[in-house]
Design a protein around this nucleic acid. Structure first.
Length: 153
DNA sequence: GCCAACGTTGGC
DNA sequence: GCCAACGTTGGC
């Protein structure tokens, strides 16, 4: 089993939106970055995901979700009315993929980016999301990083 | 294949 | 709203 971190802006889709979704499950559409897409295609059902809130008053990890459905073509790429429409994508060879995730638990308080940074020289020294200039919206998390962060909850 | 220009992300 | 950092595009 593998571990991941996925970013979303809570003003668009936050952990509370996932909690309100049918079966607490939602598709994670709209990813338009090749590296992030490639990571999503590696995801297996049952993999665990940190749900990260970005571009908000307290950026950080808001809870845990689980991969419920493995990668499949993101329909928004073919919807000319969607913000995520991609005229270059061929329906016979789609560019963009998405997964479905189900909420496992919302943390009582967000593990803030500030708090994570306190460990940036220690246990979390290789964590991608703490690297300078990182913008990748889907990143792998190691087992040791995962366990350590869970211990901060 | 290089690289400048541009658009986007995301913390502050 | 600013701006550093980065990915992508497109001219050459």
């Amino acid at each position: 089993m593998n571990y991941w971190l996925m970013k979303s802006e809570p003003s668009t889709f936050g952990i509370d939106d996932l909690a309100r979704a049918r079966n607490s499950t939602s598709g994670w559409d709209g990813v338009r970055n090749f590296q992030a897409r490639n990571y999503m295609r590696e995801m297996k059902k049952g993999d665990l995901v940190f749900f990260y809130h970005s571009s908000c008053p307290v950026p950080g990890i808001a809870g845990v979700a689980v991969v419920q459905r493995e990668a499949y073509p993101d329909p928004t790429q073919f919807d000319s009315k969607s913000d995520h429409y991609d005229a270059m994508s061929d329906p016979d060879n789609p560019r963009w993929f998405m997964v479905d995730v189900k909420l496992v638990r919302k943390f009582d308080t967000v593990i803030s980016l500030d708090e994570l940074r306190k460990h940036a020289a220690g246990k979390l020294k290789d964590m991608i999301v703490l690297k300078r200039g990182n913008r990748l919206s889907v990143t792998p998390v190691t087992k040791s990083e995962w366990s350590f962060i869970e211990s901060l909850v």
